[in-house]
């Protein structure tokens, strides 16, 4: 069940749009925040609040990679592997993270601390290679810098 606050937040979101259906995307972020990922139950609740059919929420949730359809670790590391980042060695960044965390892409560490993902362009080509951990960008990455960052995440 979504918390009362979350339900209120979604209801408030609908006020921002001419059409309730427009609130699906921000509402899914609320669900993701509440449950840690986009759950089936959460999608049904959003459908109910917005007066839509569950499949209409499911379509949106599965289209966008920003919605996690499975549980992720405490820190969700998303490495951009789009063209600019790749030219500047994104693949090495991914390999390094994979080696360092002991998981493959799309996997979560057994302690549920880290999930490693690769994503398309995050709009930060000027500071490539880059990654996003939860809501924060980490830019101009090097192996040393990643070591530092990981150390800070406990």
């Amino acid at each position: 069940m979504l918390s009362e606050g979350a339900v209120k937040e979604i209801n408030d979101l609908t006020g921002k749009y001419a059409n309730k259906r427009s609130a699906v995307m921000p509402a899914l972020f609320v669900v993701q925040r509440e449950y840690g990922y986009v759950t089936e139950e959460g999608m049904r609740e959003v459908a109910n609040i917005l007066g839509l059919r569950p499949v209409q929420i499911f379509e949106v949730a599965t289209f966008y990679t920003m919605y996690n359809k499975k549980p992720v670790g405490k820190y969700h590391i998303q490495v951009c592997t789009n063209i600019s980042c790749s030219l500047l060695g994104a693949n090495h960044i991914v390999d390094f993270l994979s080696m360092r965390l002991g998981v493959k892409v799309k996997e979560t560490t057994p302690d549920k601390m880290f999930t490693l993902s690769t994503v398309e362009c995050l709009g930060s080509c000027g500071t490539a290679p880059m990654m996003q951990i939860n809501d924060r960008y980490y830019e101009d990455l090097t192996k040393e810098k990643i070591e530092e960052i990981l150390k800070g995440l406990k």
Partner: peptide
């Protein structure tokens, strides 16, 4: 009925 949708991308 709105029960079918396009899933994934």
């Amino acid at each position: 009925a709105e029960v079918l949708g396009s899933i994934d991308r």
